[in-house]
Amino acid sequence: MKGIGPQWNDVAADVFREIGNIGASHAATALSVLLRGEVRVSVTSARIVPLAEVATSVGGEEQIVAGVFIRFSGFVRGSVLLVLQLPSAQQWVSQLLGREVTLLSMDELEQSTLAELGNMLSGAYLNSLAQWVGQQVRPEVPGVSVDMAGAILDTVLSPIGEVSNFVILIDTTIAQRDATLGCHLFLLPDPDSAELLLKALGA
């Protein structure tokens, strides 16, 4: 099997959990400043998920979710997809903008707020990845979509589906005061970068 194969399962999940933990602490610092209060970010699990099970892992194909998609380049190329349950995304954007929002029909400001939130979170994880391997990773402009999980995932997964059968999923919990939000972060190395990433991680 080419690309991300089963050989990733054994070693890589541990490495990604560690990268996830460091990323989470970066994210917590940034979020605490942004949301003006203590925010705790923790990784609940890091695992390799077969493409066929990705939709189930975010609550089913027809579940409405908020997705932030970011391409990155550098020593490896790939994408990050951040999937937030709609109530979580709504709560964050509302808090940041200081008014109630309905994300199903977003205006430009709400879109860019959601994009910025995604940018910050995935940036924390990408930096953590870059530090781990001592290389540079440059994220590009984020794209956002609030829609059926299946529709978001098929758009993001189809280009890599040509050669890969697995993605890396880091599940994160973000706690602030009494509110706890769940967030799924998918790391999708481009097919020609998967091997390189694996080597660089020493996995």
């Binding site: 997705g67 402009v141 956002v144 529709a151 758009t155 280009p159």
Partner: peptide, 17 residues
């Protein structure tokens, strides 16, 4: 065949839809 993601910077380069 939708273009799912909205970019602040401009068009979706992938244009897969």
């Amino acid at each position: 065949g939708a273009q799912m993601f909205v970019y602040a910077g401009g068009a979706d380069l992938m244009r897969i839809g």
